[in-house]
Write a protein that binds this DNA or RNA. Structure first.
Length: 290
DNA sequence: TATTGCGATTGTCGAAACTG
DNA sequence: CAGTTTCGACAATCGCAATA
């Protein structure tokens, strides 16, 4: 079931296996360069669910209404930590695994790297390849934010609250440096297909300088970010079901051939594209992790 | 569709040199 | 002296072919 309103799009499903509700919110237009989207979710299942979360060119803020989502180390399968009111996941070039105890309830804000840099007010190498508790990043504001969102009467009210908070924080924070803004915009606009040397020439800085600044401010080197952007497009096409063949998709998105695409795919998801499609979960993104 | 091998090309990073 | 560039070694990615 899907319903529409100016600020929220709701998708719901219920069955004997439990039910879920997913609500997408559109951020205020002034946040366009900073936030991709908002999402609210509520799910209950008969047992624990593990999801494989794929890397993407975004910084994720999770606001947990409880019970808390667990983060599992993909290499060992052991729990990495729990963050009662929520957490931030910085840019990452590897997938991660989340686990629910049978239900989850909360919200997700997907920041652009530049938006996250500005919102969190710290160089993002502090957050890269890490999951950090909300209170460590936002201080006392973290738990307070979660509390206010829980108490809001509707998803729309929650989205409005997020707008308010993000606008007040972002618009009063200093802008990211021009080098970083240009790097991000150029990488994104090209679908991750500019040479880093070319990018540096356009900026009038040495390649070394651009790499260092990008790594410092956004948390990943520009090439890695470019590959992530390219890979993310592939994922979007695969999810939409619009891909004719892998070979075609690879060429369209700037890979040399199918082998090249599959290599990237293995590195970012732990398996080939076919496996991703078979394991894909209908709701809440992610794929089954077992 | 998926995997592997291998040479060529590009990206990254430390050390040294430069500039204001 | 801080910030930056240049140089060069090394690592990672790409390009291409072959094969299951």
């Amino acid at each position: 079931m899907t319903t529409q309103s100016p600020h929220a799009r709701v998708v719901r499903q219920a069955s004997e296996q439990g039910g879920w509700e997913l609500v997408f919110g559109t951020p205020d237009a002034r946040l366009r360069e900073h936030v991709h989207d908002y999402c609210g979710y509520r799910e209950s299942t008969p047992g624990p669910v593990r999801r494989r979360e794929l890397p993407a060119p975004q910084v994720v803020l999770i606001i947990d209404f409880g019970p808390p989502l667990r983060i599992v180390d993909p290499r060992t399968g052991r729990p990495l930590g729990r963050h009662p009111v929520g957490f931030v996941a910085g840019l990452d070039d590897g997938y991660s695994i989340t686990e629910t105890a049978g239900s989850m309830n909360g919200m997700q804000v997907n920041f652009t790297p530049v938006g996250a840099r500005r919102f969190f007010g710290m160089p993002l190498h502090h957050l890269a390849r890490q999951v950090v508790g909300l209170e460590s990043v936002l201080g006392a504001e973290g738990p307070l934010l979660t509390e206010r969102l829980v108490e809001a009467p509707s998803w729309e009210a929650r989205f409005a609250l997020l707008d308010q908070l993000l606008l007040s924080r972002i618009l009063t924070a200093p802008e990211a440096s021009p080098v970083i803004i240009w790097t991000w915009q150029r990488l994104r606009a090209s679908g991750g297909q500019v040479e880093i040397g070319e990018l540096a020439r356009e900026l009038g800085f040495s390649q070394k300088h651009v790499i260092a600044r990008c790594g410092q401010e956004l948390g990943l080197t520009p090439k890695l970010l470019a590959r992530l952007i390219r890979f993310d497009r592939v994922i979007q096409v695969l999810k939409s079901g619009a891909a004719e063949s892998q070979a075609r998709l690879a060429l369209e998105q700037g890979y040399f051939d199918q082998a090249h695409l599959i290599r990237d795919f293995r590195q970012f998801t732990g398996g080939p594209p076919g496996e991703f499609l078979r394991r894909r979960l209908p709701a809440l993104g992610g794929t089954r992790a077992d």
